[in-house]
Amino acid sequence: MPSKRLIFLGFLSLCPLSACKTTQSSETPDAVRKRPEAEAIRGKPAPGETVTELDANGDGQTDVWEFRQKDVVGRKELDLNWDGRVDVTQFMDPQGAKVRELMDLDYDGKVDATYSYTEGKRTKGERDLDGDGRTDSWLYYENDTLVRKERDANHDGRVDYWEYWEGGQVDRIGEDLDGDGTVDQWTRNPTGKPATP
């Protein structure tokens, strides 16, 4: 069914391939149990909610689950890599615009990235890059365009790395070298020369 495959390719565009990790975690089971509990990517139907299962790629397996309240889709769950497990959960407002999106980037069943939307446009992202169950990367958007990234690179709970984006690329990078929460060094891209704060 070519038309079903084209529909599924549209769903794939929701998760850029470069952003989705395909490696399995190398942590021991004890280390995984000691991590802070991350939100599960898969939700349960709410009272009065109906679920519609769809096979978007035509392989005979469910790839999309739509959760409806009175014929209004409030949530979608998507299996983007066809392993039978949910990778992305989207929440919509009554008009069908996306308000929140959860992603399981390492396929462990837990949320690694959360994106917020206003009027259907992405405004903020929070990601757990090291898999410890805590947010360590924040992304900020204006008019659905990335303008700033912040990161807790040394995992002390405070931002120590900033990227400012212009025209789809990094304009400047700020780094906190002494751990006091303020930028100590600016680097301008693409020249790599230090910039004034």
Rank of each mutant, 00 (worst) to 15 (best):
D63Q: 11
D156E: 04
S116Q: 05
T145G: 04
E37A: 15
D180Q: 02
R151Q: 14
G157C: 11
T196H: 06
E27V: 05
G109Y: 05
G157L: 12
L129D: 15
Q24Y: 10
T52H: 10
P94Y: 04
P194V: 08
K70L: 04
L6K: 09
A19P: 00
V111H: 01
R148S: 07
N81H: 09
Y140L: 10
D160Y: 02
W82R: 15
D136F: 03
V147K: 13
P190D: 08
L14F: 07
R158A: 12
E142K: 15
G120E: 05
K193T: 10
C15S: 13
G120F: 05
Y117N: 02
R151D: 13
D108C: 08
D171R: 14
K76I: 05
G131R: 04
D180I: 03
E49C: 02
T145K: 15
D144S: 12
P47D: 14
E66V: 00
E49H: 02
N57D: 15
V111P: 01
W138H: 05
H155N: 14
D152P: 07
Y115V: 04
G58L: 11
P16R: 15
Y164F: 13
R158K: 14
V88N: 01
A19N: 03
Q90K: 04
T28I: 07
S3R: 13
S18T: 14
K4Y: 08
R127V: 13
L78N: 01
G131P: 08
Y107P: 02
D178C: 06
A46N: 09
A46K: 15
W162S: 13
L54E: 07
N81C: 02
A38Y: 04
S13R: 11
M103A: 04
D132P: 11
Y107D: 13
G96M: 06
Y117P: 00
D176Y: 03
E126T: 06
D55F: 03
K76F: 00
G74V: 01
R172F: 03
T187Q: 06
M1G: 12
E150W: 00
F91Q: 04
L54P: 00
R42Q: 08
K4M: 10
P197N: 04
R151A: 15
G58P: 10
Y107M: 11
T89A: 09
D171H: 11
Q61N: 06
